[in-house]
Design a protein around this nucleic acid. Structure first.
Lengths: 249, 249
DNA sequence: CGTATAATTGACGACGGTCAAGCAAGGTGG
DNA sequence: CCACCTTGCTTGACCGTCGTCAATTATACG
């Protein structure tokens, strides 16, 4: 349990985008009764139809929320990085309408809904901040609808990459314009509504234009300005407050 | 102001899906200081980048939330019917990342954020219920990503129609399997990521298969079972509680 | 009546999917 | 240490869904 303190650092960093936590508030988060677990890659954490009694915190690794269509195709609707609470909504919506699974091996923390509700009741500013996080998720979903619905394949993928870099910066996991990007091309396809073959060709186009380099799960943005332009990326929907986070570091 | 009482009936109906409102709670909603306005068709109510100081209630008519892509294409990410509060999220997110505009002439009510916050602070069950509404919106966004990303054109459109019927039932505006459907084919295209030409041909396919009839802004579902099957529609994401609402009436 | 909006139809082309094969890299076991 | 297998990336050929362009036909409205 000792490493819970360091493990929730990204979450605290994210919440403090809005306001500085008081010592009490910070302590309340650090004192949450978390049961930590390591989960292998490509495993479901929770499934469609579940009625979870606890929330799941991503402490390390990468996960995703997805749906399976009637024809058996997977649509990824969100990726999760350390600091995210992917099923926060399950506190208020009984049944899960999606599944959440790991992409890489993950360290996750489970916190009973009961403890979450008490935390929210006692610290209304934290309640508001968590509330706000789910609204930002919703804003991301809206942007993804636009991404899948309106943009050509290479821009779709570029947009996804821009979002990743911006979100990694918020939790302090970006190294300048370089991030860990352990997403396979098939998974990119599932997130953008494209086939893996077409994803491959589109990524090559991005490389040829000198916008990115991507190898060994490392994504380097070579020209942030041009990539944003190409991707039609405007970070307003991430509600970062500190707009400098969205700019080249 | 006298007709505010009847105008919020759909909203109250929606909130009472979760629990019966007490007399106090109901009165608090009826006593909200609403400024009512009539807005013509195809007008923006609020715009991308705005920092509204009040929330907007749809009392009559139909509206939509949309984004404009860099190439000037419109993506509709949600439709709004009476009882909806399309920009509820603006209470907690300062800047609007979308625009909201009318489809038909609308009667809307504006309630200051201040009054909303007081309502939420005083009646925590109402706060939870409104909170929950935004989570359902997010669930709808997730389903739309899947719709646009994975389903063929005719199914996409059929899915949109299924959702409309289910949502109309919740607020008591469906007449059996028949609803008002004042959405142009271009607007259906903007919501599904399709061209108006292809929407037209897909709708004709739905008609030819005896699934729907659509004329004079009236949509009649001729075979609910088969339409759901064809659309890959599972109402779980609408979180209706009373599942019978999603079934043929 | 003239005009604007919406629905419809046809012809043509492109973006992206499917199928299939080849290649590279990492892990496992004999 | 190398054969083997799995997973992921890459490439080519072909095809279909869907977009674009353009013209025609309602329908409503001033």
């Amino acid at each position: 349990l000792s490493d819970w303190n360091s493990a929730v650092a990204p979450l605290i960093m994210k919440l403090e985008r809005v306001f500085a936590l008081s010592a009490d508030e910070r302590q309340a988060i650090l004192s949450l009764p978390a049961r930590m677990t390591d989960i292998k890659a490509d495993q479901d954490i929770v499934r469609l139809g579940d009625r979870p009694s606890r929330s799941c915190f991503i402490l390390d690794g990468m996960a995703c929320t997805y749906k399976i269509s009637g024809e058996g195709k997977r649509q990824i609707v969100n990726f999760h990085i350390p600091g995210d609470v992917p099923d926060l909504q399950s506190i208020y919506l009984g049944v899960l309408d999606v599944s959440i699974g790991t992409i890489t091996p993950c360290r996750v923390g489970f916190v009973p809904h009961e403890a979450m509700r008490e935390l929210c009741a006692k610290y209304s500013r934290i309640a508001g901040a968590l509330w706000r996080e789910t609204l930002i998720d919703a804003a991301i979903f809206r942007e993804w609808i636009t991404n899948v619905g309106q943009r050509p394949a290479p821009s779709r993928i570029a947009h996804l990459m821009c979002e990743f870099v911006a979100r990694f910066r918020v939790v302090g996991l970006a190294d300048g314009n370089t991030i860990q990007f352990p997403i396979t091309q098939s998974e990119i396809g599932d997130a953008t509504g494209l086939s893996n073959v077409h994803v491959n060709r589109s990524i090559q186009a991005l490389r040829k234009q000198g916008l990115i380099s991507l190898q060994d799960s490392t994504l380097m943005v070579l020209d942030w300005e041009r990539l944003c332009e190409f991707a039609d990326f405007d970070p307003i929907y991430l509600h970062l407050r500190d707009e400098t986070l969205a700019v080249a570091g």
